[in-house]
Simulated scan of single mutants.
Amino acid sequence: LPVPRAMSGIEARRRVLRDGASIRIVFGVSTPTDTGTVTVMIPQRILLATRGATAHSGEDDQTGDWRARFSEEVMRSTVRLEATMPLARLTLGDLDGFQPGQVIEFEEHAHAQARLSARDRTLFVCEFGKLGQNYTVRIRHPFDAGQDFIDGLIPG
């Protein structure tokens, strides 16, 4: 790889890395008289460029095993889901006139236009319902941001 000369001290501190996404590895180095760190930055573009070369060198089983473990950990992580239902289109003047205890009417098909989201990102279009004493959310289809944008342009 074409690697530039190593930097240290003040030169390294004032240098701004502008190579995009990268990984950073910090090594601690110590001697009987002093300690310090060595930081290695590897740009993502270099990692991706060498990915194909290592796949054919017999490391495929190790990479697959690592990916399986990583995917398993990701799939077990928890996220908070939020289901929201559109009530109505109102003006700011209408909102200003709200009073405590006021009842807001739902639009006719509001329960069928619910959106399920996680971390402020809409994932599915759903509909609210009730099963016995429990409220439910039924997934109708994945959320399509492009279609939602088009639907927002045309008043319904």
Rank of each mutant, 00 (worst) to 15 (best):
L47H: 08
T33K: 10
A49M: 07
V40I: 15
V40R: 11
G36T: 03
E59C: 02
R45H: 10
P32K: 12
V40C: 15
A49L: 07
I46V: 14
G58C: 08
G36W: 01
V40H: 11
V40M: 15
L47Y: 07
G52N: 10
H56C: 05
D34K: 10
V38Q: 08
I42C: 02
G58L: 04
T37W: 13
Q44I: 08
R51G: 02
T33I: 14
I46S: 00
G58M: 06
R45T: 05
A49S: 12
T39G: 03
L48G: 03
T33R: 12
S57R: 08
V38H: 07
R51E: 02
T31N: 10
L47S: 09
A49F: 04
P32I: 05
T39Y: 07
M41H: 14
H56P: 00
T33L: 08
R45Q: 07
G52R: 06
T33S: 06
T54S: 05
D60N: 02
H56T: 11
M41Y: 15
D60E: 14
I46H: 01
V40A: 15
T50M: 09
T50S: 13
T35E: 13
I46F: 05
P43I: 01
A53K: 04
R51V: 01
E59D: 11
V38C: 15
Q44M: 13
V40Q: 15
T35F: 12
V38L: 15
L47I: 13
H56Y: 06
H56W: 06
P43N: 03
T33C: 03
A55Q: 08
T37Y: 12
S57D: 08
A55R: 04
P32Y: 08
L47E: 03
V40P: 01
T31P: 00
D60R: 01
Q44W: 11
T33M: 10
